[in-house]
Amino acid sequence: MNKLFFFYLSFLLIVFSVKAQDTLKREKNPYTEARYHYYLKTILFFNEYLDTDSGSYNTTQLRFLHPIANKAWNLRVDLPLISTNTSTNIKTGIGDIGVGISYIPYLDQSKGIAFRARVISNSAVDPAFGTGKWVFAPALFYGTYFIEKKMLWIASLENQLSFAGSHNRQNINTTALENYFMYIIGKNWIAADVAFRYNATNKGYPNNAFVEFGRKFTSNNMFYIHPSIAFGGQKTYNYGIEAGLLILF
């Protein structure tokens, strides 16, 4: 397990050594569209409700994005508040706090690639609110436009791998391939997303998909809502709904 972790870490260090573009164009590129602001100061506040076989799982999360260096780099912090509701108990508390760094080695007016490395801490105040593990999650992104730059496609490949934490909790080794399609209509957008996952620990496929509706209601603020559904073996929930507010500054 440790050898695999250091392999991913070494791979990311090699990738990050590639020099970024001196100037990143901010007009019509995949990473400046709604919900993908890699090098703009951004606050995302959202609430996600998930229905599970044993009750409900609700996440209220604050995400902060801040550009660093020459704006080819981006710092991300996730602060989750978790609520669980079962037939016998209701709990609320801080979940696993995450920190990540993104890097964009190539970007032009129609396509781009990006890399991200996240560490999700074992910081939940209750075992029901987190994984009980420290998790390392490297990811690769590719984005491009179609249909006269009205359709945006962003594909991502991420692996989540635990490297420390409670010996009483299940190890994490999940790979996700996600495809996000957004159709832009003026200040509005319609999107669809499907994520295929393989959980190597329990040999399951906890996939999910959602449709999304969003609107930019001021020059720096936008709102979205998306219902989702899970499918595949060993799925982690049945259905859910998420609503979020995105603020640029």
Rank of each mutant, 00 (worst) to 15 (best):
D108M: 03
K91N: 00
I14Q: 07
K133N: 07
T218H: 10
I101T: 07
T218E: 08
R197N: 14
Y49M: 10
N202A: 03
R169Y: 11
E27G: 13
S102N: 08
N202W: 04
P127A: 06
S102E: 05
A20L: 05
I172V: 12
W134A: 01
F223E: 10
F64K: 10
N173G: 03
N188P: 01
P67Y: 06
L157Q: 12
V77H: 10
D108C: 02
G100C: 06
I172Q: 06
Y142A: 05
K133T: 02
F129T: 01
K71N: 15
N47E: 11
H37K: 06
T42N: 10
A69H: 10
F6G: 00
R116K: 13
I172A: 00
F5R: 02
S17M: 10
N199W: 06
V77Y: 13
N89P: 00
T92K: 06
G240N: 02
F11C: 09
K203D: 14
K25I: 14
N207W: 08
L245M: 05
S102H: 07
S54P: 02
V125P: 02
L75H: 11
A124N: 01
I104P: 01
L140V: 15
L12Y: 14
K41L: 07
L62C: 07
I104R: 01
A128C: 01
S110L: 08
E48M: 15
S121C: 05
F141A: 07
I120T: 00
S56G: 05
A128V: 07
A128Y: 03
I190W: 00
F7D: 09
N221D: 14
E178I: 12
D126N: 09
D51F: 14
S121Q: 09
L4N: 06
K19S: 09
R197S: 14
Y145A: 05
S87P: 00
S110M: 03
W134S: 02
K3D: 15
Y106M: 01
S228G: 15
F231H: 12
T144C: 12
F5L: 13
Y198T: 14
T88Q: 07
K133R: 13
S110K: 14
Y237I: 00
K19N: 08
F46S: 03
Y38D: 01
I190D: 03
L177P: 04
P127G: 01
K3C: 05
R26S: 13
A72N: 11
Y142H: 09
F181S: 08
Y39V: 04
K150W: 05
L75C: 12
N47A: 09
N208C: 01
I82C: 06
T174F: 09
Y39W: 10
I247L: 01
T86F: 11
S166Q: 11
I113W: 10
L50P: 04
T60K: 08
L248P: 02
D22C: 05
G98D: 04
A137H: 05
S121N: 10
F196Q: 10
L177V: 15
F64E: 08
A192N: 13
L140D: 04
A192T: 15
Q21E: 11
N159D: 07
K41M: 06
I94W: 08
V125D: 09
A124V: 06
R197I: 08
P127S: 09
N2G: 08
A117G: 12
G132P: 03
L248A: 05
W153A: 10
T42L: 11
A139R: 10
